[in-house]
Design a protein around this nucleic acid. Structure first.
Lengths: 172, 172
DNA sequence: AGCCGTTGATTGAGCGTTCAGCCACCGTTC
DNA sequence: GAACGGTGGCTGAACGCTCAATCAACGGCT
């Protein structure tokens, strides 16, 4: 990396050794954890984590249904991605679409009973994995540190306009 | 989620409110950050982050070349994934394959001059993004907390037999 | 020599995501 | 009421990844 510092057109603020160690540890930990949780959910419940989150989000709603846009926002997903995902979930019988009366462009995604059952099946194993590989590895103090850190990063990203649903925001 | 605790066949140890807040914040922060970095690298340098890491790993090697297996381990990638990736990188002219004399099954992946140039182009923007959206959002204390947390999680995953592909000792 | 399990690496199908483009509908304006 | 830009949602192609299958070469064995 040092050799590149000289070659670069405009010297950026490179990371210090400590920062780089933290960054690389963070990168590996988040990636491995995500992969592990993904694999667990796929293996035990036959759904990717993103789909699990869709089901969770729907289940936390009074009528177990949401407009596609609203669902996309809450799951921080693009509309396209959600559209494909709901199509898959519909094939699995876990979600069904419903027309919207007030806005005929709109569509609802609705959690079916099978979908709720699948969620009930999937949740314990997933939560157990999260606890085992994240929460239980940390002291209570570290858990709250992690929350503070995550919220700081989130705030920074949102302040920078890195909002998922807003393609117009980035310009130059 | 509480309703599901009763329905599930075996569901001990749900997350407390604090733990769940921490988990969800972590989830969103890591995901948004990863997506942002991915997008930045793709937009500014035309490569996904995984490919960037391959180039970095090759560049940090004396001869700028590594056996495929070795490269797969260092980038924590599956062999298959790496094989596909190197194929793409070869198309881009950033990497070239070379036969291995000692083991005729083997193959080297070698960083080309164009590949190194692409890396030199890409690195400043990427590092800047990491700094801006992660490091600069945190106090120095939080950075070291994050490192400790990440290492704890990593150690837990490795203890649990999750294939890390990389023993703790090796670094760059 | 011949066999046989292992290892290095590639391949192709399938899946999820992104991106760009599209259509249908909305609300406003003239 | 016709035209307009904006919005809700869908589609298809391209891409990266995973998984299982495959192949060739190695190395130890008798």
């Amino acid at each position: 990396m040092d050799t590149m510092a000289e070659t670069a057109t405009r010297a950026p603020r490179w990371l210090s050794d400590d920062e780089q160690r933290a960054w690389r540890a963070y990168l590996q930990a988040t990636r491995l954890l995500a992969e592990h949780l993904e694999a667990q959910l796929q293996r035990d419940s036959g759904m990717p984590h993103a789909y699990y989150e869709i089901l969770v989000t729907l289940s936390e709603t009074p009528e177990r249904r949401l407009r596609m846009s609203e669902l996309a926002e809450r799951t921080r997903s693009s509309r396209s991605r959600l559209s494909h995902a709901v199509a898959r979930l519909e094939e699995a019988g876990w979600v069904q679409r419903a027309n919207c009366a007030e806005d005929r462009r709109g569509a609802f995604a609705e959690l079916t009973d099978d979908g709720f059952a699948a969620l009930v099946e999937a949740a314990p194993g997933h939560v157990e994995a999260v606890r085992t590989h994240l929460i239980d590895q940390l002291t209570p103090e570290q858990v709250s540190q992690l929350q503070a850190i995550s919220e700081a990063v989130l705030a920074g990203l949102e302040r920078a306009g890195v909002d998922t649903g807003c393609p117009m925001g980035s310009n130059s």
